[in-house]
Design a protein around this nucleic acid. Structure first.
Lengths: 181, 181
DNA sequence: AAGTAGAATTAATCATCGATCAATAAATTT
DNA sequence: AAATTTATTGATCGATGATTAATTCTACTT
């Protein structure tokens, strides 16, 4: 319930507007009560972000299969972009929220990312034999890291202005295909 | 002078410890005075970050030339990593500091990034003919975006733990070489 | 040297934030 | 019903970015 309200606030005004007081007020409580449910604000935001990654996973999972690796990768990456476009503030919280120096990502968070990595692994699996699972995982991580750079730069408004986000993603996929196809 | 002190604070305690009051105290002034010099905190941090990028440029520029693209790229990328390692908190400010929603990067900032992009362009120039400057720039940007993802994930402590940052960078370079060499 | 216009600096202030904690209210158990 | 545990409050702390009226200082003019 707190999570739902917190997500609403982020949807409406971004994660910077998510204060313990405003959240508590919206659900008819006081800020102190939230600290019985969440260790601190970072923990709250992390739970939201985990949920957001889950929504992203659901969004991408549902896209129809494509026989070619190029088609699968394109569809998946564009699914990411679509989701980011449909949920800009929630996505921004995932990409840009700066956790405190003490904070370490929870296992649940890493699991969500692993789920997305699996999607990438599946998409590119045609290129790898059964004994190349290792290389496949490395490539999926490489793609994820690189995609993340595009997302982070886009969120900060620092992607080169004369090309669209989609183009940046397509260039990455083309590079990957040129190397592995 | 304010900039030098601000850099010191970031060096010692990170950008989150850079408050107007602590900075003013260190240089024997009051927080209000800083607002005569900087429009706001974001502007201050941006100036620091521009300086940091300039230091990074100087750090990488000095590395000796290498005949092979692989060597040049490796050297350059490892220069980035070296710098990030030597100036962890200043680097973190560049990568992770969240500017306000209203803030837009200044031309000077974009110029610094362009300078780094030039370094990448130079490193890979052997692969492109004189009429392919366009493609070369696109590839340099692609590499920059992808490197940025590694840096951002590393700064957030979210790079896959079982591989080093250097490995992640090397994998990226290898992919690029496999596609373009 | 005196006076003054303008710049530089301060100190107080505002609104807000995350977090804590003793005190109170509610719910549950005995 | 009494006792005990749980939930919730509201006040409070220390700190933040930013603003501004008041003050001090500087430099120039007479």
């Amino acid at each position: 319930m707190a999570l739902a309200a917190a997500r609403e606030i982020i949807r409406e005004k971004g994660v910077t507007a998510l204060s313990t007081r405003t959240l508590a007020a919206r659900i008819g409580y006081t800020s102190g009560t939230l600290y019985q449910v969440f260790r601190n604000r970072d923990a709250l935001v992390e739970e939201i972000n985990i949920g957001t990654l889950d929504l992203l996973y659901a969004h991408c999972k549902s896209s129809p299969d494509d026989p070619s690796v190029q088609g699968r990768l394109r569809r998946l990456a564009h699914g990411f972009l679509e989701f980011a476009n449909d949920h800009p503030r929630e996505w921004d919280a995932v990409i840009s929220y700066a956790f405190g120096a003490d904070h370490t990502a929870s296992p649940a968070y890493h699991q969500q990312v692993a789920q997305l990595l699996d999607l990438l692994c599946d998409a590119i699996s045609r290129f790898y034999g059964p004994d190349e699972a290792n290389q496949r995982l490395r490539d999926a991580r490489l793609l994820w890291n690189s995609l993340y750079g595009i997302f982070a730069l886009a969120a900060a408004g620092r992607l080169s202005a004369d090309r669209s986000h989609d183009d940046a993603v397509d260039d990455l996929i083309d590079l990957y295909l040129a190397a592995r196809a």
